[in-house]
Design a protein around this nucleic acid. Structure first.
Length: 915
RNA sequence: GCUCGCGUAGCCCAACUGGAAGAGGCGCCUGACUUAGAAUCAGGAGGUUGAGAGUUCGAAUCUCUCCGCGAGUACCA
């Protein structure tokens, strides 16, 4: 029953009757220590004394080395702080407090990513202005964050919706615009009817139910719209290359590499042979018949194996090359494929479909005529929208060729496959050669591959298709050479003749950078006669106009278009009415923290140089869900700012760490409807902030997914209670005072074994924090308590204070309170003489206490432990072996055996291998 | 389908990177304190490291093949 109540207590939605029972139960649970009294007291102390203020260059404290530890700032939602926020913020807080104690000038700021859809949707529903909602939410987040004792420098708070902030977002946009990195284009873009706005590629997820919005999970569709784009592709190569310089999780770098999707290949020009040129029907040329079509391929080495060509259905040449005979079929296919898109469904079966245009292309390397098809497995948005199909060496082409009985020619032999395949190919080539292909192609659809004889040289019958590297065959002068070499040679061959060239291609698309919403940064742009220009920088910020009605227009026009006084500037120019996407403000907020109130500059160069140093942010912690969104966008903006000299590092975030997601008790994502979550407010009320922080760090490795379990929370909570009761004692009135065994023996000598245990703990905790292994650091503190502190008759103050400094990053309130209770007071600092331990130097483990004289080693015979032996730590190998042979239990296993090999692992074990 | 990560005690997790399977916590059991329970304190039990092969004197750790869970990605030529 008890655990039921506890788990219910953490649910977001609690029914009133249960909630009542819960209360009565909770009241019975005795608080292990009076956290409700001292936690708020220290939070107030820190705020009032600006304990965590970071020193800007020139100020006292700035002579220390800097350490910039950053959280991904939150979107202040109405739901309030989430246990996932607490996880990341606790981790950075531990580092911030640890680094302060280690003598660093620590920058640890917090702010609000406050533009965005939820506030606007709430506004549409309730009529409350997003600004009001945002203020309420940031107030609530601030309260919750402070209730957890995070050591932010609140003097540096930023808010993306503050005109003094977004003025500089607009300024950066103008710099992009001036450099030609922002442009308007009409293209097929993602549109979300439910959200009433376009979305970037990165904001659309491909799901089993078709493409859907990353935010809100609504269906999205392709529409041809005129939109503002940012030319992030111009930075594709640098964004890719500089990943190598970053200390990020390899998996995250892979995701960015994958998204950027660099591939190296070639463009090849094919000549179109159109025996039956298209006409308008009155016998006139519709357009001049095209005579060239360019394809992109990453496998130019397989050019001899191209047996047909495929254009995307949207390819502009389709209309002009299609023969009259094929026109009906082609038009029907185009219509069907467009319809397929509109059905917002992904075809999981991947059945390949297409239509023959009636036209042929001529392969530049061998003059073979190959049929030109259209198929929706070729995308207009990648490469040239046209491919040469090599069914023998490409899975997709292979499937398509099988479906439509197109010829398949093998031109790459598997390495090490032996001479059999190669020779059979060679003989067929010699006998029939490419002429067979031409004949098959000319025969068109009707030609069966069996009749053509081509399949004899392929693996088609066993359903195989070899897409790896190998040795070229059947490829004229290139036969016999390995794939890589053939690629180079064929590209050179094509380039010499003007028939193609090497080319690098990226998957990354330009960034769709405008939204048809109200609650976002207005663009600093004006229009006149269809021409756009940037406003003068002196006009910034371009303020969001006050509006009574921020409903989207039924015709799809952005809400700002209704603010006519704002749109029409009176001089014949009109303002741009789109707004920027939410990512804009988060692209550079880490820079504004450095100089948050500067009215004249985005950031003062001296401050930027000091805080960003050589490598930028020293530690950035957040979830992996932003891998190809925020983290890619911010790197792009930062590089542009670097290019214009506004920042001094090529990358913004040198070290990045991904926190693992905290799921509900059922392992599923925490949601209100599932009721599987925990609310930080409730946990803090019941167990206190220190216990919540300690538990979230104790759950497991920071970078792994973990399930919330309130029962497990009681472990760290009990530990804090034990530490408290170790030093404090409760009288009959329920007041806590310092325990006599601490107070009476302040100057007591420290037993060697206690000193040793303390130094082992210092060493272990320090290394664990440096390795972000907070769970094991906490376990080491628990061991120190259990094995040493709890057993001590007297607790020397020096030991207690060291323990409190070690505890402080994890449980800062209790550490501060006990620090004060054991007598660290300062007259005048506060009415009670409160003084912080935040800047007390971190203890250093003395190696002499870590050293041991003797070690116990395991003695194995043939890998099985048969005894143990204690030897001096620096014993020589012969001595160890002698002792090991004599060890009890070992001798009998060695009796009468020949030792063939001795293995000695210093300080660990001895293994005798006997025959 | 492809890529990557993870499987250790009933549960959450350690294991110095190839060297005695166990640091810590939850739960469970025993004892102390209690009229009794709760809380607290002291102690204890608990194992084929997902399965199978391989490398090695020695494998939780390295290699391969499966199984299970999770994340990313999805016709990118």
């Amino acid at each position: 029953m008890q655990s039921d109540f506890l788990s219910i207590s953490c649910g977001v939605a609690v029914e009133s009757t249960l909630s009542f029972k819960l209360q009565s139960h909770m009241n019975q649970v005795r608080k292990q220590y009076p956290f409700a009294q001292f936690e708020p007291r220290w939070q107030q102390f820190w705020l009032e004394n600006r304990t965590f203020r970071a020193a800007d260059p020139g100020e006292p404290g700035s002579e220390k080395p800097k350490y910039y530890v950053l959280d991904m700032f939150p979107y202040p939602s109405g739901a309030g702080l989430h246990v996932g926020h607490v996880e990341g913020y606790t981790a950075t807080d531990i580092l911030a407090r640890y680094k302060r104690a280690r003598g660093y000038n620590v920058l640890h700021p917090m702010g609000w990513d406050a533009f965005g859809l939820p506030a606007e949707q709430h506004a549409i529903k309730t009529g409350t202005h997003p600004r009001i909602t945002t203020k309420q939410n940031t107030d609530n987040f601030t309260r919750q964050i402070n209730s957890l004792g995070f050591s932010y420098d609140w003097q540096r708070e930023v808010n993306t919706t503050d005109p003094a902030y977004y003025r500089w977002t607009q300024w950066i946009f103008i710099q992009l615009y001036k450099r030609g990195l922002a442009y308007v284009a009409e293209s097929p873009v993602w549109f979300c009817p439910a959200l009433g706005t376009t979305l970037a590629e990165e904001e659309v997820l491909q799901t089993d139910d078709g493409p859907r919005s990353e935010r809100g999970d609504h269906p999205v569709e392709r529409r041809n719209l005129k939109q503002w784009m940012l030319r992030i592709t111009a930075y594709a190569d640098r964004l890719l290359k500089d990943l190598d310089t970053l200390d990020w999780p390899e998996s995250l770098k892979d995701m960015q590499r994958n998204w950027i999707g660099r591939s190296q290949g070639a463009e090849v020009v094919f000549t179109v042979k159109c025996d039956n040129p298209p006409t308008t029907g009155e016998g006139e040329w519709k357009v001049p018949a095209p005579d060239k079509v360019t394809v992109y391929t990453t496998r130019p080495d397989t050019l001899f194996g191209a047996t047909y060509m495929v254009l995307a259905p949207e390819h502009p040449l389709v209309a002009t090359i299609t023969t009259d005979a094929q026109r009906a079929e082609v038009d029907a296919y185009i219509a069907a494929s467009r319809n397929k898109r509109d059905r917002e469904r992904i075809d999981l079966s991947r059945a390949k479909t297409g239509a023959f245009t009636g036209a042929y292309a001529i392969n530049p390397v061998n003059g073979a005529e190959i049929p030109i098809w259209i198929a929706d497995y070729v995308l207009m948005t990648y490469g040239t929208g046209a491919i040469m199909a090599v069914p023998a060496h490409d899975e997709r082409d292979f499937e398509f060729a099988k479906t439509y009985s197109l010829p398949i020619i093998e031109v790459v032999a598997k390495p090490g496959a032996g001479g059999q395949g190669a020779s059979s190919v060679a003989s067929v080539t010699a006998a029939s050669g490419l002429a067979v292909v031409g004949a098959a192609a000319a025969a068109g659809l009707g030609a069966s591959t069996a009749e053509s004889g081509v399949t004899a040289v392929t693996d088609a019958e066993d359903g195989a298709c070899f897409s790896g590297d190998g040795i070229s065959i059947n490829s004229g002068e290139f036969s016999g050479l390995p794939t890589e070499e053939v690629k180079t040679r064929i590209i050179a061959w094509l380039e010499e003749r003007g028939l193609g060239c090497g080319r690098v291609q990226y998957k990354l698309r330009d960034w769709l950078f405008c939204r048809q919403r109200y609650w976002g940064e207005p663009f600093p742009l004006i229009w006149k006669d269809g021409e756009h220009s940037a406003v003068d920088e002196a006009e910034l910020p371009v303020l969001l106009p006050e509006m009574a009605d921020y409903q989207p227009s039924p015709d799809g026009a952005p809400p700002l278009s209704k603010a006519t006084d704002w749109v029409n500037r009176g001089d014949g120019t009109m303002r741009e009415v789109n707004t920027m996407p939410q990512w804009a403000g988060s692209c550079w907020y880490y820079l504004r923290y450095l100089d948050p109130k500067n009215p004249d500059k985005m950031v003062d160069p001296a401050k930027e140089k000091y805080w960003m140093g050589d490598k930028g942010v020293d530690m950035y912690i957040g979830g992996a869900e932003h891998a190809v969104l925020h983290l890619l966008y911010a790197r792009f903006w930062h590089k542009v700012l670097f290019d214009i000299g506004a920042v001094s590092t090529p990358e913004p975030f040198h070290k990045l760490y991904n926190q693992g997601m905290i799921t509900g008790s059922d392992g599923a994502k925490i949601s209100k409807s599932a009721g599987n979550g925990a609310s930080p407010d409730e946990v803090v009320a019941e167990y206190g902030a220190d216990a919540m922080r300690l538990y979230e760090m104790f759950m497991g490795p920071l970078n792994q997914k973990k399930a919330w379990n309130t029962q497990n929370l009681e472990g760290p909570y009990n530990f804090l209670g034990r530490i408290w009761r170790l030093l404090m004692i409760e009288n009959q009135e329920g007041e806590w005072t310092l325990h006599p065994k601490v107070a009476a023996t302040a100057d007591a000598p420290v037993p060697d074994e206690m000193t040793r245990a303390l130094h082992i703990a210092i060493d272990g905790v320090t290394r664990d924090i440096d390795n972000m292994a907070f769970n094991t650091a906490i376990a080491k503190l628990m061991s120190l308590y259990k094995d040493t502190l709890s057993k001590a008759e007297v607790l020397p103050r020096s030991v207690v204070q060291t323990v409190l400094v070690l505890l402080a990053p994890f449980a800062p309130h209790m550490a501060e309170e006990l620090w004060w209770q054991v007598g660290n007071r300062e007259a005048g600092a506060s009415p009670d003489g409160m003084t912080t331990l935040s800047y007390i130097p971190w203890p250093v483990a003395d190696p002499k206490w870590l050293a041991v004289d003797e070690v116990e080693m395991a003695v194995q015979v043939n890998g099985k432990v048969r005894g143990r032996v204690t030897v001096p730590v620096n014993a020589a190998e012969p001595d160890i072996l002698a002792a090991a042979k004599a060890a009890q239990g070992v001798d009998e296993w060695l009796a009468g055996k020949t030792i063939r090999k001795n293995i000695v692992v210093p300080k660990r074990l001895v293994n005798f291998v006997v025959g």
